[in-house]
């Protein structure tokens, strides 16, 4: 309504650790979860986002503002996303992908999962385990059996002695 009269509407979002953030409605509705709340008229007061902490929400809002400021140009949006994610560590990326999933923001969800996938691609099993702290709960026999089953996937991949 207010958008039609020229003043942009602002929404207030609350993280699960009680931090408050204001964000332009036009940027916030990139999240389908928030858009549905706005359309249902539940966005009058503060919108509580129970699954997102303050640090992650701040990051997501930076993304919302950044991406919505770019006009419909897929190339520019893509390069913004790449730049936005380039300096994030895995812990942050994991929080972001959870938040994006909860907020139903497919563009962010896709970008973050693609980024994590890109890191894991073409790497040895041992490298991925160490980098992401994945505990190997296979017995040596089980592991050998799984490897044997998918032998072809190891062709041309960097070898790693302790995997």
């Amino acid at each position: 309504m207010a958008a039609e009269t020229g003043t942009p509407t602002t929404l207030t979002l609350k993280s699960n650790d009680d931090e408050l953030f204001s964000v332009a409605e036009s940027a916030a509705i990139l999240s389908v979860t928030i858009r549905n709340m706005v359309e249902d008229g539940c966005a009058g007061g503060v919108i509580p986002l129970d699954n997102v902490d303050g640090k992650t929400l701040a990051s997501v809002i930076t993304y919302m503002n950044g991406i919505s400021a770019i006009p419909a140009d897929e190339e520019k949006k893509k390069s913004y996303r790449d730049k936005f994610l380039s300096d994030k560590d895995f812990e942050t990326l994991a929080d972001m992908v959870l938040a994006a999933n909860y907020l139903n923001m497919s563009c962010l969800m896709d970008a973050v999962s693609a980024k994590i996938a890109q890191v894991m691609e073409k790497k040895s099993v041992g490298w991925v385990r160490r980098k992401f702290g994945i505990e190997n709960d296979y017995t040596p026999e089980e592991e050998a059996a799984v490897k044997e089953e998918h032998k072809w996937t190891f062709e041309g991949v960097e070898t790693d002695d302790d995997n």
Partner: peptide, 23 residues
Amino acid sequence: DILIAILSHMSLKDAVRASVLSH
């Protein structure tokens, strides 16, 4: 679901190789 989304962004070869990571 999110791990599946991540694996879906890889080539099939890389996604299948991830089966060796853990149960």
